[in-house]
Design a protein around this nucleic acid. Structure first.
Lengths: 213, 213
DNA sequence: CGTCATTTTGAAGACTGTCAACGCGCGTGG
DNA sequence: CCACGCGCGTTGACAGTCTTCAAAATGACG
């Protein structure tokens, strides 16, 4: 699936841009004119709720596409978690090209359904009732996406994680400690985590509970 | 938006089918060959989790479209909540027609983005931390969708509601009682609810947590 | 009218959110 | 180079809410 995306198709249409830490890439409600591909760094999609709380809908890592909306407006804001480089692609260009180029049209449908899948997985994650299980699931997902073996270098703060999992920072922090005490992980620093025992983590996370894909 | 959908477009392509209560319309993992329009009755989309719990992803009422997937397979099962009539439309027929008929293509994109929106709203609902607030939000949504003024006739069981809101049946039942005691609703029977004070409900469901006393 | 499923109510226990204090790392400024 | 301050993360105590377990009450249906 990854090789299906020819550099020529996207990089060719995109413009490289850089964003500093915590800078907004686009805002909720803005017209969704462009879509984006992370080159380096990390991005979060977030919404501010009426009560002042914040919800982080997704984290985007290098290689990920974001900003893809079916409607006319962005439903979330996007912010740079770290200094990052992003490829910006005009939606109109892409759609126009998709009309004639079957490959681009197919790529677009793949990306869309991947995003839908991500949304559904996130919904299932929020149904996990115990905090350590959500955190375990989060860690496993991150480890897979970062493809860095068992050493996970988190780019986001505890607050970001908490707002993603629907928990408080205190609970996230506590969950990390609890999981560490089982020996499943080791926190070499606050944002560097080594997965010591993946099966324990998996059992925790609710591959025991969710219907596995 | 509703009048945009010409009867000719859909009814013309669809086949009417009837399903008895609790009968499965399609199963998770089945190829998504068709999409469906509820004519009468009610349908639930659900997934069974490995631990035996169940998640109800959505309720579909008369006029709603369901079974629309971006991927090749259905991600949820669909079951008839009550005896119901459904219009079944071959996906291939629709897609083929969308290639030549702009109107059908547009309709398809509208329905897709509506479904995406529904998913996002549901995700936000699960972030509400207090049970009565989730139930209040659920009631308001149902009242709007049923378009029956303030008398809401629920078609689904407490278990269905609980599995939709990520709660237990006991908590849902308790929440109904608690909301009733505030005078915002009245339970004329277990499945018939009259909204007495919509603003109280709205306040409960939405900006309830801070400073909105 | 009786039986069974559904719903409601209650009590006890578990977990998370809130509030508060402390420790740590890092950048700035002296 | 070191001290200080600030943001971030951790830990603890406590209250509140939800889940679990249990039983009674209501309603549906034969």
């Amino acid at each position: 699936m990854e090789n299906f995306e020819p550099a020529a198709t996207i990089e060719w249409m995109g413009t490289a841009m850089s964003f500093a830490r915590d800078v907004e890439i686009y805002e909720e409600g803005e017209p969704a004119d462009c879509l984006y591909k992370v080159v380096s760094g990390a991005v979060r999609a977030c919404k501010v709720l009426v009560d002042g709380r914040r919800h982080v809908g997704a984290f985007y890592l290098p290689g990920d596409i974001f900003g893809l909306e079916t409607g006319e407006e962005h439903v979330s804001s996007a912010e740079a978690i770290t200094q990052c480089k992003v490829l910006v692609i005009k939606r109109s260009t892409l759609v126009a090209r998709a009309r004639t180029d079957q490959e681009v049209a197919f790529w677009l449908s793949i990306v869309t359904s991947r995003e839908l899948r991500r949304l559904q997985d996130h919904l299932l994650l929020l149904l996990i009732q115990y905090a350590p299980e959500r955190v375990a699931a989060f860690l496993l997902t991150m480890a897979d996406r970062l493809c860095a073996g068992n050493a996970v270098e988190l780019r986001m703060s505890r607050r970001d994680i908490a707002d993603d999992l629907g928990l408080t920072i205190e609970t996230v922090s506590l969950s990390f400690s609890q999981i560490e005490s089982t020996g499943a992980i080791e926190l070499t620093s606050t944002r560097r985590i080594v997965l010591q025992n993946r099966s324990v983590l998996t059992r925790l996370s609710g591959c025991s509970r969710r219907s596995c894909s």
